[in-house]
Amino acid sequence: MDDKMIDLVVTSSPHIRDKVKVSSIMWDVVIALLPALVAGLYFFWSLHTLGIVIVSIISAELAEILGAWMFRKPVSLKDFSAVVTGVLFVMVMPPSSPYWLIVVGAFTAIILGKWIFGGIGSNPFNPALVGRAVLMISWPALMTTWKVFPRIIPPHGVSANAITMATPLNVVKLHGFSQLIAEYGTKAALYKALFLGNVGGSLGETSALLLLIGGLYLILKGVIDWKIPTAYITTVFVLSPIFGRDPLFSILAGGLFLGAFFMATDYSSSPITSQGRLWYGISLGFVTVMIRVFGAYPEGVMFSILIVQLFVPFFDKILPHVYGHRKEVKS
């Protein structure tokens, strides 16, 4: 036999691997976010809005390089995880945020949210939300300033020459639900606006419809587990009327869909077992409603995710049934 034809490598089984890679997963997330992001650019259109999206992505990538350098780890831009963080972060920011705020937030997200815990896979919180939380506490005024964009003005709401307007949840907190309905004329008109996304709010959180489409794409692609968003949204829907809140409004308003499909499902900061994810989703819904009803902030999605993610090590103890063992071990 011709020895040149034979050069055997010996590796451990399995000898085939699935095509899914970290980078392909990250791209799927970016693809899923695109419809809502594009809608955000449309509703809050200005060159500045487009500018902060680009600045956020570039800042996240630069922060990734800095983080890798700081912690003496190989730079791994090719897994595209920093792109996801950059996009997610800007989508939870007010569209009128100054550039410097975006830069600070993106660096905070990547360095404080991820690298100090050891980089990808080690972060206990969603990095984008860490970035936003730090800004929220440090520059509360900037984070709650909602500039008026022509495409989002409610039919009977603030006039076009007003400087600021509130988000729907803000209006409810300050003036009550009836005031909000009055601004839109009918309840149906309000639901429609919330569903399509021509309401005030963060850049990428307003269109429930497009976020839902993106979320379904991720579920069908097997990227995320349906249990987290389903348990989260259902819990909010069921719990809100108990506290006198309109259930449909409660799930469509604010960043719930963005949070449920894209933030709470962050791999490293969410539970690793199927049952754990179910309880995690339910807990998220509970804490969100509690913050919205009793908290100082009108919106509860961000802090509820950060709080519940603290308990992920606990949810990870809910282990699946091991084949051949009579009772699952809960230790």
């Binding site: 970290v22 997963i25 995880s81 990808i120 896979g121 080690s122 587990d225 791999y267 490293s268 690793i272």
Partner: peptide, 8 residues
């Protein structure tokens, strides 16, 4: 590459 805890 590092484990991303995707839980697949």
């Amino acid at each position: 590459s590092p484990c991303i805890r995707c839980s697949r």
